[in-house]
């Protein structure tokens, strides 16, 4: 996955590299999508102590997720590497991606959160295990909150700080379950960074 990208990964137009002062001085990757496609993603400025999100779930994001997760176009993990890298590099906290059910992962051929972090060159550690195969899709908020614990922790944790990573948050149930599992295993504090706010 280390090939030069010459055409926009989303619309196939030829990419023009623009050199600005920012690209000269800041360590950054060459873009993989064109400005037109990039402009279609809508940024959030939603940050609380517990949760940071980067983008809203709009039509462009819906198409992106469909192509990335369901068409299994893994190279799209690179699209948001700059944003994720900026938020996560040089963190002292341990970074914990939300895991996939092993069967589901096999079916999809890749774990989408891991690939996002991988593309952003962020080291991470898997500390959680998914206990069920059901997804949160298509459930009401009440139904989501009433399910049995979704995750279990794989080991006893040191009393340190942890950051959970997920692709999309709607009601926050997944994050809440994961957080509880980590805290129960001995974590001191848990925050979350999620790419998309539903």
């Amino acid at each position: 996955m280390n090939k030069e990208v010459t055409h926009c990964l989303l619309c196939e137009r030829e990419l023009q590299q623009v050199i600005t002062w920012q690209t000269l001085f800041e360590r950054s990757w060459p873009p993989v999508i064109c400005e037109r496609c990039e402009a279609k993603f809508e940024r959030t400025h939603y940050t609380t102590e517990e949760l940071t999100t980067i983008f809203y779930y709009n039509d462009a994001m819906k198409n992106f997720l469909r192509q990335y997760k369901f068409s299994q176009d893994i190279i799209l993990a690179k699209v948001f590497r700059q944003e994720l890298n900026k938020l996560l590099r040089n963190r002292s906290e341990t970074i914990v991606p939300i895991p996939m059910n092993p069967l589901k992962k096999k079916e999809r051929t890749f774990a989408h959160i891991d690939e996002l972090l991988h593309a952003a060159e962020i080291p991470y550690e898997h500390l959680l295990e998914k206990t069920t195969t059901e997804t949160q899709v298509g459930k009401s908020k009440l139904q989501r909150q009433q399910v049995a614990p979704l995750f279990s922790c794989t080991k006893e944790l040191a009393a340190k700080h942890y950051i959970l990573i997920d692709d999309i948050v709607t009601t926050g149930t997944t994050i809440a379950h994961a957080k509880k599992a980590l805290l129960d295993a001995g974590a001191e504090s848990v925050t979350a960074i999620v790419l998309i706010k539903g």
Binding site: M1, K3, E4, T6, Q72, D73, I74, T109, F110
Partner: peptide
């Protein structure tokens, strides 16, 4: 060659290659 993407496949547990050129018809 730029349309072929190599990745570690969780299904066959080795490096796999997929074609981006016809991905809209199912990868």
């Amino acid at each position: 060659s730029e349309k072929f993407i190599h990745f570690h496949c969780a299904k066959c547990e080795q490096v796999c290659t997929y074609c981006r050129h016809c991905i809209t018809m199912g990868r």
